[in-house]
Computed example of a mutant assay.
Amino acid sequence: MSATAELRKLRSGRSAAKQQNKAAFFFLLPWFLGLFVITVGPMATSLYLSFTDYNLLQDPSFTGLDNFSRMLSDERLHHSLQVTFTYVLVSVPLQLALALALAIFLDRGLRGLAFYRSIFYLPSLLGASVAIAVLWRTVFGADGLFNEGLGLVGIEGRGWISEPETALWTLIILNVWTFGSPMVIFLAGLRQIPASYYEAASIDGANRWRQFWSVTLPLLTPIVFFNLVLQIIHAFQSFTQAFIVSGGTGGPADSTLFYSLYLYQRGFGNFDMGYASALAWLLLLMVGAFTAINFWASKYWVFYND
């Protein structure tokens, strides 16, 4: 083959590669548009607004770190952090424990497993909806179904939603009730554990409880870690439940004032969008810190078969 023919072949190959790259970029273009228009653009704008005084009606004016310094003396912000941390640190472990228990129960080979799995998954689909929040407020109201059930056994009810001591706990119960998503993931993980491990443990004299602690839980730790990270992020972002149950106030006595609800109040209630943007970035930092701590601690308790 002559040098001219080889040069033509090389140019043809380069031209074909360029055409393929153009086609690939064309198909990726909608994703890039979504990334920059829906994600990167709003995040950059929010970061800029966090350093400004902006009320949605006038042009933003640059104020430096004033919004962040205001957080140090904002008592409602501190209270919302306390409420949110309580909600996350209590509801997430309870939710994962219930999801794991039900996954182990379903893993025993029940008839109609697909039906039960679908039924138990429904709360995860509906739990964050407005309809369920309205239902929850009705059930735990002074004249609600929960008090009627207590009355049948001679226990006097109370306004669970309307009293500061119990209002947050009703929302914690609601989050625990949405166990379906982690339960399905746990069930998939349990199906991947070889039966030979349990047979070997049984031969060694391990009962079911010992098998759970020595075989099931260690091999399931990557799934536990995955669910833990996802549910913590989800819990920090909870908004609808508290907004509907409290009527958007975070009451009674700010007992259900989630961080996201307080952020909403500052941005769209008080039109203090600059401060709300700073609060949003603080939320991002908190979620990132919790995630980083989980990844750092995972090396001490997550087992990856290596």
Rank of each mutant, 00 (worst) to 15 (best):
L283D: 00
F236G: 14
D272F: 03
V245A: 08
T240N: 15
L217S: 02
L257Q: 11
Y259W: 10
W213K: 09
Q237W: 05
T221P: 11
S277H: 02
D254W: 01
N270R: 12
N270T: 13
G251Y: 06
S260A: 15
S246Q: 03
L282V: 15
Q211S: 13
P218I: 04
L279A: 11
V215Y: 05
F226D: 06
A242M: 14
F258Q: 11
N207H: 08
V245L: 12
A278I: 05
V224C: 14
L263V: 07
G250F: 04
I233G: 11
F225S: 10
Y264W: 14
T249H: 01
F236E: 05
P218D: 12
A276D: 02
R208E: 14
F212L: 15
G205W: 07
L230P: 02
Q237E: 14
A235R: 08
N270I: 02
Q211E: 13
I244M: 13
Q241V: 00
T249R: 09
T240H: 08
Q265D: 07
I232H: 01
G274A: 01
Q237C: 09
G248T: 02
L257R: 06
F225W: 15
T249E: 08
G274K: 01
L261S: 04
F268A: 07
A276M: 02
S255D: 09
G274Q: 09
G274T: 09
A235W: 03
R266N: 13
G205N: 06
T256S: 09
N227M: 02
A276H: 06
A253C: 10
G247C: 09
T256I: 07
N207Q: 10
N227Y: 01
I232W: 00
T240F: 05
Q265T: 01
F271C: 03
A278Y: 12
F226E: 11
W213E: 10
G274R: 00
S238I: 12
M273L: 12
Y264F: 15
S214N: 15
I244D: 03
Y262T: 06
A253S: 08
W281L: 13
S277E: 02
L283I: 12
L257Y: 04
L284T: 15
I232K: 06
S214H: 14
A253G: 02
I232Y: 05
L220D: 06
P222L: 01
L285I: 14
F225H: 15
L285Y: 02
G251W: 02
T240S: 01
T256A: 11
Y259F: 13
N270V: 08
T249V: 04
S214P: 08
T256R: 12
G267E: 01
T256Y: 05
D254E: 12
G247V: 05
I233F: 04
Q241Y: 00
W281A: 07
I223F: 00
A206N: 01
R210F: 06
L219A: 02
L285Q: 06
T249I: 06
A235H: 03
L261E: 00
I223M: 12
A280Y: 02
V245K: 00
M273G: 14
G250I: 08
L279H: 01
I232C: 03
S238R: 14
G247H: 08
A253T: 10
R210L: 15
G248D: 04
G250K: 09
A235K: 11
